[in-house]
Every structure is written in C-alpha cells, then in structure tokens.
C-alpha cells in the first residue's frame, strides 16, 4: 500500500505515459450520440474517430458526468491501494463531475479522501494533478499537497483558439457564447479558461490569427513553469505552435496533447490551445 494516490476525471487530458508513471486513477466522463453513450476512456471512443464523427453527426453529441457507480468503484479501488486519495475534478461551475465525486466520497471513506475543485479544464487541471502526484511521491502530506495546489491555482491558465463558434454556442455551458445571435459570419473565438469560468479574449477570422493570438498570450505570460499545447484534430498546427514557442523554455518538458472528446463536444475540431502554469513571480 502506497501513501497517496491521485484521482481525477478524464477532462484532465493527461498523456497516458504520465498517468501510468504516477498511477493516477481516472474516471471516464461520457459522450452521448443520441442514445449511444460512450465512455471517454480512449477505448470506446478514440479521439481520431470522435473528431471525424462530430463533423458528420446527424445530431449534436452531448456530454455527461460519470455514473456514481463507476466513480464509486474507482474510488474504492484507490482507497484499497493507498492510505489517502486526493481527487481533483473539473470546475463544479461547468460540470456535474465534482458533485458526483462529492457524493461518492461521502459513501466511501470521507476521512481518507480529499476532494478539490481544480477550477480548471484540460491540461490546466492536468498540470495541477501532475504537480500533486510529484509532491506525493516525494513524501508530502495530504495537507501540504492541498495547500500547494490551492496556492498554484491562480497561476494555472488555459487559452484556446477555436475554429468556429458553433460548438461553444451549441454546448450552452458558456452563457455569453450561447447568447450570440445567429451564425451569419464564421468567427473564431479566442477564449480563456481560468478560475472556473470561460471568458472571451478576442475574436478572429483566420487560422493564422488564431495561431498568432496564442503565441502572443504565451509570450505575455512567460516565464512559464509548465507548458502544454492542446489541439482538437489539429496536430500539425500544434507542432508548429510548440516550435514558435521554443524561446520560452518552460521549467519542465512541454507536451502536446489532443483534447478529450468530452471537451471536444464543446469546442469542435481544428482548435488549438495552451495549458500553462506560470512560473512563481
């Protein structure tokens, strides 16, 4: 039995090697095409299949939080394997996942589970999970880890440039996007996800300007402790973006990840993003 295990949900977007390296327990969230419900576990629905499929789907897919039962099973297993479980979830303001974890923690062993609303999505949350796992490995206590992660949250940021407004508008989770009238002109929103909310930074109309907006944001926020380039079916531009940020030199090795279908439903394909932890000032 090891000391502390990290648990999170599949919106964290962590690369599989990192998940294995720290034995992070991930609860899959779900994508529903009509009555067909697919777990975001990388098996039932691969990213490649998903991004191909949403473009042609006759009905818009929706997402749902993991079932209580499955979350219970995974948390119980983690508690069998460790003294303490620290769980970070997607923001309670944007998703029901946090509440599911809360209900399950109450039914398992509340004293041995510490639940944190990460306030972040994708690699914004992913990096917080990794830092917590690194601390656990080097012998930090649950209280120390929680204090450190809470202190890190203001330094976590996600910026994304979406190829179209359509998916964000349809998803309904972002009030200002849902209230946009009509779709007469194709607009590419540049958005920020931070502290549980999604805000608009600007809007552009060409993919080069999407790219430039992210390059500018990264430079304005340098120096960085961690850097991830995220994309939705847009690997070539993701690689190009990482190359354009070569002068930033984050403290840790940067990664490129393809965004989970559960977030993909809300942002659509051909998107590009950055998930960072700013360096301590």
């Amino acid at each position: 039995m090891s000391g502390i295990l990290l648990m999170t949900d599949s919106t964290c977007d962590l690369p599989v090697e990192m998940v294995r390296r720290f034995d992070i327990r991930i609860v899959p969230t779900y994508v529903q095409f009509g009555q067909e419900s697919l777990a975001d576990d990388g098996v039932q629905l691969t990213r490649t299949d998903f991004y191909r499929r949403i473009v042609n789907a006759p009905i818009h897919p929706t997402t749902s939080a993991p079932p209580l039962g499955q979350t219970y099973t995974i948390m119980q297993q983690a508690l069998n394997d460790a003294d303490h479980v620290i769980a970070l979830t997607a923001p309670a303001k944007l998703s029901g996942i946090y509440n599911i974890f809360r209900l399950v923690a109450e039914q398992t062993d509340p004293k041995r589970v510490t639940l944190l609303d990460s306030g972040m999505l994708s690699m914004g949350m992913g990096w917080l999970v990794i830092i917590a796992a690194e601390m656990a490995e080097s012998g930090a206590t649950p209280a120390e880890i929680v204090a450190a992660i809470t202190a890190l949250q203001p330094r976590a940021d996600v910026w994304a440039a979406l190829d179209t407004m359509l998916y964000l508008r349809r998803s309904g989770r972002v009030g200002w996007a849902a209230s946009v009238v009509g779709n007469f002109l194709n607009i590419k929103p540049v958005i920020r996800q931070h502290d549980s909310v999604v805000t608009s930074i600007t809007r552009v109309r060409t993919s080069q300007r999407m790219f430039n907006a992210l390059v500018d944001l990264a430079h304005q926020n340098a120096p960085l402790d961690r850097l991830a380039v995220m994309h939705t079916a847009n690997i070539e531009n993701a690689q190009r973006l990482l190359a354009a940020l070569a002068d930033i030199h984050p403290n840790h090795e940067p990664v490129i990840v393809e965004v989970t279908p559960v977030i993909g439903v809300h942002v659509g394909p051909q998107g590009l993003g950055l998930g960072v932890i700013r360096a301590a000032s």
């Binding site: 529903q32 419900s37 749902s64 079932p67 209580l68 039962g69 029901g96 509440n99 599911i100 209900l103």
Partner: peptide, 15 residues
C-alpha cells in the same frame, strides 16, 4: 439507479 445514473437529473433521480 445509482450504478446507471447519467447526468444531473439522473444523479438526482438516483438520490
């Protein structure tokens, strides 16, 4: 209901 609950409303229904 708990094992099969989906979404907010499914979770509340299971409760």
């Amino acid at each position: 209901a708990m094992m099969g609950s989906r979404g907010n409303s499914g979770t509340i229904l299971s409760q």
